Simulated assay, not measured.
Amino acid sequence: MTPILLIEQVLNGLQSGVMLFLMAAGLTLIFGVMGLINLAHGSLYMVGAFAAAAVSAVTGSFLLALIAALAAAAAAGAVIEVAVIRRLYDRDHLDQVLATFALILIFSEGTRYLFGSFPLFLDIPKALAGPVSLPGGIQYPLYRLVIILAGLLIALGLFALIARTRIGIQIRAGAADREMIAALGIDISRLYTLIFALGAALAGVAGALVGAIQSVQVGMGEPVLILAFVVIVIGGIGSIKGAFVGALLVGLTDTLGSVLLPMFFAGFMEPAAATSVGASLSSMLIYILMAGVLLFKPTGLFGEA
């Protein structure tokens, strides 16, 4: 592998990682504070992507598409928290899994009814289309660099929100002792709705950003949701810092593995066999990484018992 190809794949891994962080951050907030297993989080990612594609098709504005994705996902999150999720906090985790799985089916069929079964496409803005020259003669898509930068800025904003604001203090206190903050007069129901809407908005923005580099289709959120669960297990449930580190590790491992393993096996196998074996093993790498982390630190890298 040439140095240029390696750097390009590292950048691809970073881009994948920051998008996974937007998914995993909302998921870990919801589970860490509410103790809720939300399988429908991937559906909110899909809602953001479809809202962005629909608004972009009508207005031609990518900025308006992003705003629509954030608003639609946050609104959907708030509605399902009030209508469904609020009744599940004191229920068994199995009830939560069944109810949020039902929400996946509702969102999938509802989206198919509104938009049809065929994929939609969200165009990259003209100002961000094409490659940009990086040091060393590397040509890399400008839009992917913008995704990395946007993801990092959102991550910094989320860290600041959690660490520096009154709402952040309430969120951290809710994760530590929900009964105590309720006794201190905090409206726990409103706080839960806010957290759920925030997590949904992060997922929706991720769906919109990724929707411009792949097709927008029904069910697109479920594979990302699986990776997001891997991320929060690696980073530690309830830890935003853990979600960020875990997302970067998963993104880099998945991207580099899919390139390096086929190249490795190509040295002593037929090209077709090397590609097949390498692709199969690369899809296992993130789960091997997760198992390795749990073997030495069962609570995840930054999780607490």
Rank of each mutant, 00 (worst) to 15 (best):
Thr2Phe: 03
Leu11Thr: 09
Asn12His: 09
Gly13Tyr: 12
Met23His: 01
Ala24Cys: 06
Ala25Gln: 02
Ala25Ser: 15
Thr28Ser: 05
Phe31Met: 13
Ile37Ser: 02
Leu39Val: 12
Ser43Asp: 12
Tyr45Trp: 08
Tyr45Phe: 15
Gly48Asn: 06
Ala49Ile: 10
Ala52Pro: 05
Ala54Trp: 13
Val55Leu: 14
Thr59His: 11
Gly60Gln: 04
Phe62Pro: 10
Ala72Leu: 10
Ala73Leu: 02
Ala74Gly: 06
Ala76Gln: 02
Ala78Ile: 03
Ala78His: 03
Val79Thr: 04
Val82Trp: 14
Val84Asn: 00
Arg86Gly: 01
Leu88Phe: 04
His93Gln: 14
Thr111Gly: 01
Leu122Asp: 14
Leu134Arg: 08
Arg144Gly: 11
Leu145Val: 09
Ile147Gln: 12
Ala150Val: 15
Leu158Glu: 08
Phe159Lys: 13
Ala160Arg: 09
Ile167Arg: 00
Gly168Ala: 06
Ala173Leu: 08
Met180Ile: 05
Ala182Trp: 00
Leu194Pro: 04
Phe196Trp: 10
Ala200Asn: 07
Gly204Cys: 08
Val210Arg: 11
Ala212Cys: 08
Ala212Ile: 01
Leu225Ser: 05
Leu227Ser: 14
Val230His: 02
Ile232Lys: 06
Gly238Lys: 03
Gly242Glu: 01
Ala243Asp: 04
Val245Ile: 12
Gly246Thr: 10
Asp254Thr: 10
Leu260Met: 14
Met263Val: 03
Phe265Arg: 02
Met269Ser: 15
Met269Ile: 03
Ala274Cys: 09
Thr275Gln: 13
Ala279Phe: 04
Ser280Tyr: 07
Ser280Arg: 00
Ser282Glu: 05
Ser283Tyr: 10
Ile288Phe: 15
Leu289Glu: 07
Ala291Phe: 15
Val293Gly: 06
Leu294Arg: 06
Leu294Cys: 07
Gly300Arg: 01
Phe302Ala: 01
Gly303Val: 05
Glu304Leu: 13
Ala305Asn: 09
